[in-house]
Every structure is written in structure tokens, then in C-alpha cells.
Amino acid sequence: MKKIPNTIIKKKYQKLIIGLLIVLVYYWAISGTGTSPTSFAQGIPHMADFIRRMFPPDFSNIGTFLLKGLETLQMAILGTTIGAIIALPLSFLAARNIMPNKFVYHTIRTFFDICRGINEIVWGLIFVSMVGLGPFPGVLALSAHVAGALGRYFSESIETVDPKIIKAILSTGANKIQVVIKGIIPQVKPAFINYILYYLENNFRAATVLGLVGAGGIGMELLTSMRLFKNQEVLTILMIMVGMVILIDRISATIRKRVVGIKTIE
């Protein structure tokens, strides 16, 4: 009889153990969170009742909600811009290929990790206690988080630039700063714009949630209407929020197409 090699048996057991581990991880996660399809099915009538009570939407305060929506947009624009301004120069110091000093590199990287590691909501709570209620702490919260996130993505983009282009610019007799301006920035510009636009959309959504901790904008209105069970107003606010997200998405897609130059595959 032909003997089955040990390696095949070993591989079979390995697969079995990995399979069992995956099942265990999911069982642990499901039992820990109480995720149950039965509870979900039982909750559907309540959900339907909630949605039914939202109709028809109440437009009586639409002017205020729209203004608050615009305030949220202002928060997102300012938060993203300030975050990008902080991240841009620092990201060059956190790119391994152009920053030979390891201490500077690790310090800036850690700064980005701290900024990014703390959620916008937590930053919101910190800044609300610092400067009081309103959209201003919201702007600060978004800036802090975005500086960390953009800083990391910017520096990673810089690390992927083509060194051959840098050499070509150097060979023209350009100085080091000119090499950064003409050799590195044009290579990373499309990625930078993509990240900034992505974070603008992301920050609009984050800014609505920030309202829940008192940091201004349409989120605060949503919280108030929900607490007062004004479900028809809740629907109006949700409609404004979704509409604005779609609008930002369309505008950023247009900018991206013009600046980054996406081509259609023929």
C-alpha cells in the first residue's frame, strides 16, 4: 500500500485547525454581542412603526435645519483644511525616504498616531470642555483627527515616489527644495487631492455625529428632535444630511476628474 506523505497529513490538520479557529472567533463575537437573527426579525415591526411615524416629513423648521446643515459643512471644510495644513509640511518629515533623521521621523509618526488614534467624538468632548459648546470645538476636533490621518497617508504617498524622477530633477542642477517642489509634489499631488476630498466627505459625516456631543451643526438638531420624539422632523434632518453627502460626493468627483485626470477604460 502506498504511504501518504507526512506533509500532506500535516497540511490537512493545519487546515482543520484554522477552520476551527475561525468558527470559534465568530462564535465568540456573536455570543459576546448578542447578535441574533430572531431578535432582528422580532424588531422589524418596531422599526416599521418608527419609520411610519416619520411620515410625512415636517418641513416647518427646514430653514433652521438647512442653516445648521451649512454650519456642519463649514465645520467639515475648515476641519479638513486646518488638518491638511498641519499634515502637509509634517508629512515630509515623516517620510523615511527623505528624512534621514530617525528621531524626527519617529516623533512625527507618533504625533500622527496619537492624533489619528483618538476618535473625532473623543476629541470633540476634549475641545468642548476646553472652549465650550458650539461648532468651534467641532472644527478643532476634526482638524486634530484629520491631521493625524492625512499626515500618515501623505507621508506614505511620499515614500512611494519614483526615485528615478527625483534623480532626473537633481541632474538638471536643481537644489534640494526645488527637487521637492518639482520632483516629489507633482508625483504625490493626485493622491493628496484624493485623500483631502475623501476626508472632506468623511468629515461631513463625522461633523453630524459631533453635534451629538455638543459640538454644533445639524447633529445637535438631530439629537434634540430625537429626544423630543419629533420623528417627522428627524426625517427632514436625515433627508438634508443624505442630500448634502450626495452633493459633496458629486462635487468632489468632478474636482477629482479635473485635477487627477481619471480616464475611462475604453
Binding site: 528615478k164 524622477i165 541632474s171 538638471t172 507633482p186 508625483q187
Partner: peptide, 11 residues
Amino acid sequence: MIFQEYNLVES
């Protein structure tokens, strides 16, 4: 200097 792979900023 002229390089094999042109080394231009493509974008």
C-alpha cells in the same frame, strides 16, 4: 542627462 525610462513627471 537622458535616461532609459525617460524619468518624466507623467502627471
